[in-house]
Amino acid sequence: MRKLAAAALVGALVAVLPATAALAADPKPDIAVTSAADKANYAEGETFTITVTVKNKSSVDAKRVHYTGGDSEGVDGVVYGELSTGFDLAAGATKTVVLTGKTNHVAWQTGRGYVGFELAADNGEANDADNITIVRLLVAGAFDDLGGYVFQGESYDADWTPQTPGVPDVKVVATSVDGKTTYAEASTDAKGLFRLAHLPAGDVLLTFTAPAGWKIMAGENGEDDHTLAQVTADDSDEPRIFVAAKKVALSSPTVSPSVSPTPSPTPTPPTPSASTSAGPGLPITGDNTMLLVGAAAVAVAVGTLLVLVARRRRVRLQA
């Protein structure tokens, strides 16, 4: 029985190996495509030319590389040329083809049109990540206003209704997508409404600065203070931008640690003079005061003695 089982296993392996080898010997081409428009800006109704570069990055020839589908907006009459009929592309080879079309009024209203498409080969595609391309066609000339609301919400995806309280005094600045050119500025009113005037049609960047106590929750995850917006030239004045803001606690001001003041030294009372007399002291001068006092005392004594002597002499004379 063991011999039969071993023989069956060997037979199965022999049967599978040719199929595996056949799969390994049948690799698919790898088509990569890039494209670019011939101008940076177009006018409404202007013809555009897109240069398409197709490269076969694999070691397998690509059979009938062709356009398989795509999408476009703001353009008319797109002609795909060889991309529609198809062409063979050898392994490692590169081919350049063109397609053409015209911008239309929608491109003027929105500030841009685009053409996007996908290529494939009849014998398959090894990598679907780089065989798709999209070309933007900028159309300048149209301007319009853009309005919206900054409203109170607990999360970035909160819903706005006409009864939702707004956040006033939020500064809104509209710039180019790269932030280098400022188009307009505005502030929200008591209802949270703002309106930016005369913006160019196309993509703009809106940046919000909320007053203290509020946090803007913009962007895809609500962690940003800015968002992209599309300006479209039409007759509608309806607000199009809705951004939630959440009330947050005000940060406390930083308080420096208290420092005990250095006590002032207690003034030392003046040393009393040696004299204990309650009367006013004699002024101190540079003269020898004690000598003068002594001389005066001697003069008084002598005067007294002379008076006594004179009285005794007068008494004797009278006697």
Rank of each mutant, 00 (worst) to 15 (best):
T188F: 02
D178H: 07
L137G: 00
S187Y: 06
Y156V: 06
A229I: 05
M217N: 11
A129C: 06
A158E: 12
Y183M: 08
E220Y: 09
V135W: 00
V139T: 15
K215N: 13
V167H: 02
N127V: 12
D157M: 11
L196Q: 04
A233E: 02
T207C: 02
R195Q: 13
V231T: 02
P168D: 13
T181G: 00
D225T: 15
A91G: 08
G111P: 03
T188M: 09
A140Q: 14
V177T: 14
W108I: 00
Q109P: 01
A120T: 14
I132F: 06
A126T: 05
V97W: 00
D225W: 00
Y156Q: 13
D189Y: 04
I216W: 04
K102V: 11
D225K: 14
G141K: 07
A218K: 05
L193M: 13
L138G: 03
D145H: 10
A201N: 10
D145R: 09
A158Q: 10
A229D: 08
A93T: 08
K191M: 08
V150R: 04
D235N: 15
A140W: 01
T164F: 05
T100F: 01
G222I: 10
A186K: 06
I134K: 12
T175K: 06
K191F: 02
A93P: 02
P211F: 06
F117R: 03
P168I: 06
G219Y: 03
V167R: 03
T175G: 06
V170Q: 10
V204N: 03
G153C: 07
D159Y: 08
T161D: 10
N123V: 14
D169T: 11
A107L: 04
K215P: 02
S176M: 07
G124R: 12
A201C: 02
L228M: 11
V106Q: 13
A142L: 05
G148P: 05
N104P: 05
V97T: 13
G101R: 02
Y183R: 08
T96Y: 02
R136K: 12
K95E: 11
D169R: 03
Y156G: 11
G141H: 07
D144V: 03
T227F: 01
Y156S: 15
P162R: 13
V172I: 13
A126W: 01
V115L: 11
L199H: 01
L146D: 05
L206T: 08
A186F: 03
A190M: 06
D128I: 12
T175S: 15
H226N: 14
E185P: 03
